[in-house]
Design a protein around this nucleic acid. Sequence first.
DNA 1: CTGTTAGCGCATTCAT
DNA 2: ATGAATGCGCTAACAG
Lengths: 340, 340
Amino acid sequence: MARKPVSLRDVAAVAGVSASTASRVLNGQGRVSDATRQRIVEAAERLDFQPNALARSLVSGRSHTIGVLAVNAPGAFVMPVLTGATTRLGEHDLSALIYDSHLDRDLLAATVRKLRARRIDGLLVLGDGSRSGMRSVSEGFAVPVVYAYGVSDDAQDASFLHDGRLAGQIAGEHLLSLGRRRIAHITAWDYDLSARARAEGLSSALDAAGVELVLGHPLHGDWSRQWGVRAAQELLASGAPFDAVFCGNDEIALGVYSVLRDAGLRVPGDVALVGMDNMSGMLGHADTLLTTIDPRLNALGAAAADYLVAAIDGGPYEGGLHSVPCTLVLGESTALDPAA
Amino acid sequence: MARKPVSLRDVAAVAGVSASTASRVLNGQGRVSDATRQRIVEAAERLDFQPNALARSLVSGRSHTIGVLAVNAPGAFVMPVLTGATTRLGEHDLSALIYDSHLDRDLLAATVRKLRARRIDGLLVLGDGSRSGMRSVSEGFAVPVVYAYGVSDDAQDASFLHDGRLAGQIAGEHLLSLGRRRIAHITAWDYDLSARARAEGLSSALDAAGVELVLGHPLHGDWSRQWGVRAAQELLASGAPFDAVFCGNDEIALGVYSVLRDAGLRVPGDVALVGMDNMSGMLGHADTLLTTIDPRLNALGAAAADYLVAAIDGGPYEGGLHSVPCTLVLGESTALDPAA
DNA sequence: CTGTTAGCGCATTCAT
DNA sequence: ATGAATGCGCTAACAG
């Protein structure tokens, strides 16, 4: 229980050697006779010796702690990134010192000092998913800094983001593979870089197949279900024929879905539907009503963490955007067997 | 940039005093003349001195690191707890060393050793929300251990959980306050302690009002939307009149909702609906179709973290269950203005 | 009031 | 092959 931790000297004493010899053995360094090695190892095991990480850190200069600066940690989409990153850090035996909402001018300076006082081995900066540039804080640190779920405004910095363009492309290719040719796109405003990336990806897929978007352009609004409802109504009212809709996110898709159903259209029989975010997956549900694109935010966080750790260990550090691939999650809304 | 960190001796040298005097001043300890104090403070500021937390830890024995043992960190409902806990730890300048899925026999022993090697100041154990007992690991540590989103099987341990009973009670009282008297309950199997707590809470509210549950008992199934669909159909088929349904979670509620709508019933006009989990809130949406109970999992994690930190600082430590209150989130499904 | 000494636990010279 | 000495940066006990 409350037995005080055993130190290296204790082990050395039991083994009848000096502390330095014990240290050597336990770290696999210099040459030591097998006999004494044996004694030391046994003693260490018998005493359940745990080298004090604090003392070790003091001499090595490595704290085994990573700083995490988040814009809004409890955000629905940030949490998976944060969780993915911090649990991956744990797998590397690194702890995470998390400061949320400390990126504004007032707090930042003080936070940077705290982080430096802790001698963090690296820093992870988490954005809020908007691709607009985050102010780089890398200058303030002598250790590697990696940005995730947001992009640093300094091209020298490595930024990790889910590949929105790929998402659009996958969605487009999936719908095309189903034989759909009249594909509409309902999404958020074009100045939202996240929306734009998806739209571009969709376009590239359609272009490659020589197919043109229904109405010739996406329908732009916000990210809400309500917008999905209105947009779907507009689409129906336009009279333009369509057999598929790629929606900017699952919320919009659900709005569209309800309108289509109310209009007596079958999904996917008459209209196939693809969303984005894998909302129900995020909630841990197996019911895949909607075919969707999973941005794999957990993997995004983990990838950023891995990259940071590698960089700390002398690995490569490339500035610019690092994209993490998305995956298609099949649901009933594009099921081959059109029961609905 | 890469300038090496300034040490206490540097400050002392500049101020023309000894290191220990500088230490005293910077820590507000013993009495020092105002003159030298001034010089030291100025020197420290000018050099932007950051006391090395590692060295400080070595002597104080406090690592400022909290261990976190999670059963399944990426779980949809665990993430908010984890995020809430770790960001709160950050507010206390404590880092989190997270080990996920290390509670099984194989890994646990090794993980405990790692945690001890790190000299963690406290441990947080995160369950998966099932109230069934988690094996206590407190014996393995000389520091405070707090359990959250799960209950330790040792009554000596402090466990934090959202108050499911209160949730049921709030739901019941809300429906009663709306004038509903024929209230049904559709939820998961009774051996799920989480489902049972909600059912008990509902019962207590109804009992207090002298109202009896429709059918005299809850409808038990799983947590899925499909079960909500089937249960609602059963309920309708039973012919028993009802004007409200409290559902074990939002998924079930959505299933019930769709059946009611298809049956031509208005929500909340004919039937008011209350769910649980605040799913749409977790996803960051403002659209509150469903009235629901928010388990405040973020707050749960934060509360557990706070309690642990306080205990570390010599605060009280009470074994047993600590409940974190839930809150009602109003949505259209019980709106006073029955538009739908 | 302030400087000197010692020690936290370990790793790493340097001797032997 | 092993032990003694030194230092990582800071705090605390002891002198003066």
